[in-house]
Structure formats: C-alpha cells, structure tokens
Simulated scan of single mutants.
Amino acid sequence: MSILVDNDTRLCVSGITGREGTFHAMNNKRYGTNVVAGVTPGKEGQDVEGVPVFNTFAHAVAERGANTAMIFVPPRFAADSILEAADAGIKLVIAITEGIPAHDELRVYTHLKRAGDVRLVGPNCPGILSPGKANVGIIPAAFFKEGNVGVVSRSGTLTYQIGNELAQRGFGNSSIVGIGGDPVPGSSFIDIIELFEQDPQTELIVMSGEIGGSAEEEAAEYIAASVSKPVVGYIAGFTAPPGKTMGHAGAIVSGTQGTAAAKAEALESRGVRVGRTPTQVADIAVEILGG
C-alpha cells in the first residue's frame, strides 16, 4: 500500500497553465499520475498536453471526477484556491506554493479544521510521492523505488537527500511526504506518522525535522505513546546560530527552544534514534531493517 496518493489519485492542478504548473503537472503525468484536469479562471476549454482546463474546481470535479488538488498559483491567490478545492468536495489538497502570507495560512487552517474532512499537505512543500503509483508535486522521482520505508520531512531538499541515501543502501519507500516548512502547516509530523503507523507496507518511518517550532518535540511524545514501528529521526540545523532564520519561515530558534539539540534530545529520550547526518540515518535504517 501507500499513503495519501496512489493509483486511485485523480489529480486536478490549480495553475496548470502557468510555466511551473505546466512543467510539474506534465512531469507528474509522465510518471504515471492520473492528471485529469487543470483549473485556471478564464481559460476553460483550453487544454495542456491533453489535460482539459476548467474555470473552477467544482466544474473539474463534476466533469472529471477529480479527488486530489495540487496548488501552483501565486501566493496571493493560493488560500482562495485551497478553499475552493475543499468546497468543491476534494478531500486531499497539496499546496506547493511558497510565500503564502501567514494570516492567509491561518485562515485556511482554521476553515479546514472546522470542516474536518479535508486534508491539506503544505504549503511550501515538495508534495507526495508513492513510488510506482503516483507523484504529486516536485519530488524528483527517478531514484526512488517502491519499498517499506516511509519518509516525512519539513525540508524538500533533505527529503531528496535522505531518500537518496536510503536508495543507495537498497531501500525503497512506501510513500514520501513533504509537509513544508511554514509556520502554519496543513499537516503535521503527527498527522503523517499516524498514517504510516496504519499502513501495512511501511515497516520503518524516517522523520526529517529542522530547527524552529515544537513540531518535532510534539511528535516525540506521540511516537512514544502511539507508534509501534521503529522511527529514525534527523534534525537539520545543529550549527545554526540562535535567533537566525534558516531558510524556512518556521525555522526560527528562540533561546533554547527549537534548537536541533533540544529536538534530538526529546526524540532520543523517547526511543527515537537520531542521525546527525543523512548518511547516519541510512546507517541506522540498515541496522534496524537489515540490507
């Protein structure tokens, strides 16, 4: 199996007629993802390499049965696009867009929490890859194969790096999920780890975190209480100076809170082994699963 995206995914891409939207939607399609529609207001009736374009998500759902949305529109339009997809009945929304204003993210988060039946992954994330089944987003899928390791990460680049280290050791992946590095993520480590815990294909979970916030500490408590599968951690930013923003909007350390050392300690005190480099993560995976 896999989580979130698979052979049943019917993808609709918001912003498909833009340069980045077209490029990545077609990459996803070539991988084998069922890209059934695109949405760009005012361009209904056009198509992008055979994918029909609609004015609204509601029309895309009615005409093409879309069940998953990928958001590639500019930041100022992204929140409304996410909410439009949800209102149209789409249950999984993957927001790739970077730079969405924090108050817009909070508005979306609050609305979707009240609705209760729509899952948002992102924003500012690389998307989701279930090797051999579907790729929704910008993850370079070529060196990943199907297997038993689930990966969840705040950083897109580290997702690829750790995935590549695991691939070089012969491991494949059930699914790879980038949750993004913004202050108000739609899905947390806990949300995704819970799905991996329930997934029979996933035998090992790799969690790649970074400095800032408390998501990793919260995940450590959840893992100790509710996860039976082995979890390997990685925290980026051991050398980051306090108070400095490091790449992501959510990667800000305040005093001793949110440091890599504090996060690693929280995880290790609850039985999660933490690699100090992506290579060490792969070493630990080999030790746990063999290979």
Rank of each mutant, 00 (worst) to 15 (best):
I252D: 07
I252N: 05
I252T: 10
I252W: 05
I252E: 04
V253I: 15
V253K: 00
V253R: 03
V253H: 02
S254W: 09
S254H: 15
S254Y: 13
S254I: 15
S254D: 15
S254K: 14
G255N: 12
G255W: 07
G255K: 11
G255V: 07
G255L: 11
G255A: 07
G255F: 09
T256V: 13
T256C: 07
T256S: 13
T256A: 13
T256Y: 09
T256N: 12
Q257N: 12
Q257Y: 12
Q257H: 13
Q257L: 12
G258P: 06
G258R: 01
G258K: 05
T259L: 06
T259Y: 07
T259K: 06
T259N: 07
T259I: 08
A260T: 02
A260D: 02
A260Y: 02
A260C: 09
A260G: 04
A260W: 00
A260H: 00
A260L: 05
A260E: 02
A261I: 12
A261Q: 14
A261Y: 08
A261M: 13
A262V: 12
A262L: 13
A262S: 13
A262G: 14
A262F: 06
K263A: 02
K263R: 10
K263L: 05
K263C: 04
A264C: 10
A264D: 03
A264E: 07
A264S: 13
A264R: 07
E265T: 15
E265W: 03
E265A: 12
E265M: 13
E265F: 08
A266N: 10
A266S: 15
A266T: 11
A266L: 15
L267T: 01
L267E: 01
L267P: 01
L267K: 02
E268G: 11
E268L: 08
E268Q: 15
E268R: 13
E268P: 09
S269Q: 15
S269P: 04
S269Y: 07
S269D: 14
R270I: 06
R270S: 11
R270V: 05
G271N: 08
G271F: 08
G271M: 08
V272H: 01
V272A: 02
R273M: 06
V274Y: 00
V274L: 04
V274D: 00
V274G: 00
V274W: 01
V274F: 00
G275L: 01
G275I: 01
G275D: 00
R276P: 03
R276E: 03
R276K: 15
R276W: 09
R276Y: 09
R276M: 08
T277N: 10
T277W: 04
T277G: 10
T277H: 05
T277P: 04
P278H: 06
P278E: 10
P278S: 10
P278K: 04
P278N: 08
P278I: 02
T279D: 10
T279I: 11
T279C: 09
T279Q: 15
Q280C: 08
Q280L: 11
Q280F: 04
Q280H: 14
V281L: 03
V281S: 01
V281A: 00
V281C: 03
V281P: 00
V281Q: 00
